[in-house]
Design a protein around this nucleic acid. Structure first.
Lengths: 338, 338
DNA sequence: CGGCCTCATGCAAGCGTTTGCGCTCAATCA
DNA sequence: TGATTGAGCGCAAACGCTTGCATGAGGCCG
């Protein structure tokens, strides 16, 4: 490839010079304004095409006020679920001509410096998938009128949300395990105040318990493989008669850790104990795990989340809205069947 | 929290009104220009602080030409290695007041629409971690003078790069397995034209072969768990006397798949066959895997990559530069020790 | 005491778009 | 034939910031 010298970026002004018309005419022509004659529009379009013209979004933002940027807050990379979400968000955002600006990724709260970027870059809106927004960040968003949509989170403060129906997912898992003849269940929760985890556990207890089953044990899985592993060890260490015959982890990554620990201790899954999770991440579907899980409708969640965000951007005064999407139980080999 | 009405964003102009000085004075005062008296500077700083002033980066970009945005191209989420990279990049970029704008995430080449975003948003530079840049995208970057730095990739076309010394990593792994008494090795490569994989394999062959060992078999691992699994099945299906006594997968995700398939077929690791990988992702360190691997110095790669990018942004004419960083062998239980 | 220099600050142009309004010209109407 | 109208296009302001240059007030020198 030859080493072309970087030629100056074509602008409306340079195009207008080439076409012999005014800048405003070029601007209107390129966006198909009917006030410009069809012939001129075609001529200008050809010129722009040839010059490789790309509108300068920043300049556009200055006058239109819209940047096309959306802030993105991501959870810890150690949970593959967030990687799935990221990919889906990037794909769908691109289709809507929105560009995700990463504000935060990883564990822990959002730093103040990050919240500032949100203002400095005039993001049109903000998508939060995980980490608790620090209250200051939330306040900044609210005060400066930046709409926030949570995906995979219940709405808090000033925000809309699109999430999985965790309660129903938990219920379905409870029914499934009960139907499979299980009598004593252990639940591995997140430990934190994650409303997702809480709802999933609550739904589970409702149906498993109501089926005359018993949710005898609760463990802290710390939302991580390691936490799940420790919980699994604790369960394996129980005397055989006190041991649960099934376990429900509120996320797959926890379930994987628990399953590995149970097997490490010599227990067989699902013969000695059934293991189930939540999310249905690809990792949990791999042969050694094959974890029965409740699949979150990720694509739909992202789609509805972006819908909500677009709506809030268009009508900032609209009331907050929360949509709940039902997932689907995916039966694999980690739990005894009914 | 009360529902504060969104107050208008403070600007240099509004501050200048409040301070009774001109806009340019405020601008200079806020960036510590010594031409403004210390007293006035302090007064203005206080005012800005109180009003919660945040500079509008977009407007600044219009005149200064610098956006602080860097385009980010990410590999498929199915490989946790990219999630690690992402987290590290976000963290380090924030410390340098750079904001990553996600251009692409996932498998497959970059779409043209995406390459356009790169121009429309006037990114200062571009960080590429994986997916092959389509030649058109590369041309766009070169022609419009956008510096590109590859992390975890060898430099191609117009680009600098910071990557792991894959060749040396492969060599070290070869020496290690030879020292462990292995005689016949299988290599699971990426299948594609990934220079990373090629270098790792080449280094491995050099030292393992030179130690009078034999690299008898090569399999296509397709850079994925599934590919690794299939390769593992193929290896397990070999008659015992033709079976290799060790295997080197050019990435951990492949090694995990292979290991699971080998065990699924009844082989014991490392007793029947040693398994090693590359990257040292956290997943591969988990107890059931405990894969001996070559750790990429991710933090250093990102740091040097951003250094290179910053340098190229400051001096666009500077020659391309490639830095190679040595990793470190992490010995775990998946391979017999010397 | 006039000229010159320094210090502190203001003026205004410019970055690339968008958009309300006004202008010109030709065609149509009375 | 003069007035009305619509189509087609240009003018200019505005968005918030940066920056080269101009300006004014003092202080110093000769």
């Amino acid at each position: 490839m030859e080493d072309l010298p970087p030629r100056p970026r074509p602008t409306l002004s340079s195009l207008s010079g080439a076409a012999g018309v005014s800048v405003s005419t070029v601007s209107r022509a390129l966006k198909g304004d009917p006030r410009i004659s069809a012939r001129l529009r075609a001529r200008i379009a050809a010129l722009a095409q040839e010059a490789g013209y790309q509108p300068d979004i920043l300049a556009r933002a200055m006058s239109s006020g819209r940047t096309g940027l959306i802030g993105l807050v991501l959870g810890p990379a150690s949970n593959p679920f967030y990687a799935m979400l990221l990919e889906e968000i990037v794909r769908q955002a691109a289709a809507r001509a929105l560009r995700p600006l990463i504000l935060h990724a990883g564990p822990g709260p959002i730093e103040d410096r990050t919240a500032e970027a949100l203002l400095q870059y005039r993001v049109d809106g903000c998508l939060v998938t995980s980490a608790d927004m620090s209250s200051r960040a939330a306040e900044i968003c609210a005060r400066s009128g930046v709409p926030v949509v949570m995906i995979n989170r219940v709405p808090r403060l000033h925000a809309s949300a699109a999430s999985c129906d965790n309660l129903e997912g938990g219920r379905e898992m409870g029914r499934f395990l009960r139907a499979g003849g299980h009598r004593r269940a252990a639940v591995i929760h997140t430990g934190g105040a994650s409303s997702n985890g809480i709802d999933r556990e609550r739904g589970f207890s409702e149906t498993f318990g109501a089926g005359k089953g018993e949710v005898a044990l609760r463990f802290d899985g710390r939302s991580s493989y390691e936490g799940g592993w420790e919980a699994g060890q604790a369960i394996a260490a129980l005397p055989a008669k006190k041991r649960p015959d099934c376990l429900f982890a509120v996320s797959d990554i926890i379930a994987m850790g628990a399953m590995d620990a149970l097997r490490d201790a010599g227990l067989r899954v699902p013969r000695d104990i059934s293991v189930t999770g939540f999310d249905s991440i690809p990792d949990a579907a791999r042969p050694p795990y094959a974890i029965t899980s409740y699949e979150q409708p990720v694509a739909a969640m992202v789609a509805r989340g972006l819908d909500l965000l677009a709506a809030r951007i268009a009508h900032p005064a609209a009331p907050d809205e929360a949509v709940l999407l039902r997932g689907r139980l995916v039966v694999r080999r980690s739990a005894r069947l009914p």
